[in-house]
């Protein structure tokens, strides 16, 4: 997306947003409710026309014909409840231009891969929530799309279904597909995605590789398990702040320029250290920081 802006009347939904999604790299789209994710996805898919900026594919403006080959899975289940499972996937495959014969063949292969082959003749509304989510994924992947866009694909799924869906997406990404999905489940995004883009109030506030963002945040945390409650030794490190102090675990935020080993030595001098570790900030912490940051404190990398 290149410098995309869009407003609904006086309300700015997207404000000069630019970011890229690399083929073969799973990318997560983050943002609190009302941040502009849905508008962004709609513009990406061509359902909305941006008032400014453009969507490009391989450095060329993306055409409607190209978009029709993409796969899209909406947040709520975009399925016909009364349709049979097999007919549903065949219908969506044919919508994407496949012949009836090829559509049936691809549908059977994919439903088999997603453990839905034996539900071919079942009505969609007879499936459980998890199975419907799998079927929804099947309808968006049945035509082997080069670009896959998923809006909150893991919402409402049990851990087994999350694991299955994650594995399917990993396989597609490894095969070279361009995958972008939005999610509120940040731990999942942290595990699945190499790249993330976060928007807040229509502006891009965080962008880059998850590992780089975590390492470069300057927000390392020292985790200590001490057998004494005395914290007086911390007064020697005014730049270090307590993130949490619960039970026997003390979590300290280490400011840039402070050597965590010095802090560890001071702790050892004051108490017996039974366990310790140096953690990078979680994506959730980066998310919260970015979400609460003012525009002049953006974290775009």
């Amino acid at each position: 997306m290149l410098d995309v802006s869009h407003a609904f009347g006086d309300r700015v939904a997207l404000d000069h947003v630019s970011f890229g999604v690399v083929p073969g790299v799973m990318t997560g789209l983050l943002g609190p409710n009302g941040a502009g994710k849905t508008t962004l996805i709609r513009i990406l898919l061509g359902v909305l026309q941006p008032q400014q900026g453009a969507v490009q594919l391989r450095a060329m403006p993306v055409t409607d014909a190209a978009r029709r080959t993409w796969g899209y899975m909406p947040q709520e289940r975009g399925l016909y409840p009364a349709m049979k499972v097999g007919e549903q996937t065949v219908f969506f495959a044919r919508l994407h231009g496949l012949s009836r014969r090829v559509a049936e063949q691809k549908s059977r292969q994919l439903l088999d891969e997603l453990d839905l082959a034996d539900r071919w003749d079942d009505r969609t509304d007879k499936l459980s929530g998890g199975l419907q989510q799998r079927l929804q994924l099947a309808t968006s992947l049945v035509h082997d799309p080069e670009v896959i866009v998923l809006d909150e694909p893991f919402a409402g799924l049990d851990p087994v279904a999350v694991a299955d869906l994650s594995e399917s997406l990993r396989q597609r990404t490894a095969a070279g597909s361009t995958v972008l999905f939005s999610s509120h489940q940040l731990d999942l995004v942290q595990d699945l995605c190499e790249d993330i883009a976060m928007i807040e109030h229509g502006r891009l506030v965080l962008l880059g590789k998850v590992s780089t963002l975590r390492a470069s945040s300057g927000r390392r945390q020292l985790r200590l398990h001490l057998d004494r409650p005395d914290r007086a030794w911390l007064q020697a490190f005014p730049e270090v702040h307590v993130v949490s102090d619960q039970a026997d675990e003390l979590r300290l935020g280490i400011a840039p320029g402070t050597d965590p080993l010095d802090v560890l030595d001071a702790a050892r001098a004051a108490s017996r250290v039974t366990d310790f570790g140096l953690d990078l900030p979680t994506l959730s912490q980066l998310f919260l920081d970015a979400a609460h940051a003012r525009p002049d404190r953006e974290l775009v990398s």
């Binding site: 709609r42 898919l45 061509g46 359902v47 978009r67 029709r68 993409w70 899209y72 899975m73 909406p74 947040q75 709520e76 289940r77 975009g78 399925l79 016909y80 409840p81 969506f92 919508l95 994407h96 309808t139 968006s140």
Partner: peptide, 12 residues
């Protein structure tokens, strides 16, 4: 309501 129209609008 079921967002099927949104999926269809991507293709049609």
């Amino acid at each position: 309501a079921s967002r099927i129209s949104e999926v269809l609008l991507v293709v049609l």
